[in-house]
Design a protein around this nucleic acid. Structure first.
Length: 267
DNA sequence: ATGGCCATCGCGGATGGA
């Protein structure tokens, strides 16, 4: 079973690339079973349900005009069940979280797709919002993990774990995505019993999931690893692989993010 | 380097992203 997360920075612009990527995975013999999308930047009524349906996918959508917006795609015959939008009990104008249960080998899987706040700059109002949002996410996930021990949290976290995730850890020390406060929040999340699937495996150094559009960031591999897949402890033994697919970042009009892919074995 | 790039809204240039 294959799951993936991808911040596509406008589904209006990137729909053809998403369909093309899904088709390429299937053609390679390993179709994507669940895809979490972030930054749709469109409302639910503009979501291309029909196009995904023709590609063999059902969808749960939580859209928003201009900013944010998240969705979960599931390959037929799977459908997203028990869908939850945003963090229950946390009032939020922004569409950042969508959760659903999907069938999987070894039992149902709870999948949480999330677009974490950027935070802009330490000390800013947006940074304070990011911290509040992370507090609320953690509180909710603690309960969610009790209800659903087999849980995957994936998305654009907008936080690096450590200096391995940063192209220039010295120059970027203490800047947004790299602050101690953000990393402490990430640590608190993993302390709930969530594991960074990517680091369960030996990985090439300087593997990133995002590159700035400016200054030939991708060509020079000046990037960050800020998109993550976290799995709950009961799933750890099932994790067969976790990789970042740089190929779509080479497209003509790419998203600034690349998809992160998780492969789960039978058990 | 005051920024470079990209998407949105909307038709100029601000805002947000990371």
């Amino acid at each position: 079973m294959k799951l993936a997360t991808w911040n596509i920075n406008s589904l209006t612009v990137r729909l053809p690339q998403v369909l093309e990527w899904l088709a390429a995975q299937a053609a390679a013999g390993a179709p994507v079973d669940v895809l979490a999308l972030q930054e749709l930047k469109l409302t639910d009524d503009k979501f291309p349900l029909e196009a995904f349906s023709q590609a063999g996918y059902a969808a749960a959508v939580f859209g928003q005009k201009t900013y944010n917006g998240v969705a979960l795609l599931t390959r037929a015959p799977r459908v997203p069940q028990d869908v939850v939008r945003n963090i229950p009990g946390f009032a939020d104008e922004m569409a950042r979280v969508i959760a659903a249960t999907v069938e999987a080998p070894g039992g149902p899987l709870r999948v949480v797709g999330a677009y974490f706040p950027n935070g802009q700059e330490p000390g800013s109002d947006k940074f304070a919002y990011k911290m509040r949002w992370l507090d609320a996410l953690r509180g909710w996930l603690r309960e969610e993990l009790q209800r659903h021990p087999r849980l995957v949290l994936m998305g654009d976290f907008n936080i690096t774990f450590d200096e391995r995730d940063v192209w220039d850890p010295v120059a970027l020390a203490g800047t947004i995505h790299c602050t101690d406060e953000e990393r402490a929040q990430l640590g608190a999340l993993t302390a709930l019993g969530l594991v960074d699937a990517f680091r369960l495996f030996e990985q090439p150094p300087k593997t990133f999931s995002w590159w700035d559009y400016r200054q030939l960031g991708f060509q020079k591999n000046r990037g960050l690893r800020i998109d993550h897949v976290l799995v709950s402890e009961p799933l750890r033994a099932q994790v067969a692989a976790c990789t970042i697919d740089r190929a779509p970042r080479k497209n003509k009009q790419p998203s600034d993010h690349a998809p992160v892919v998780l492969t789960l074995g039978a058990d």
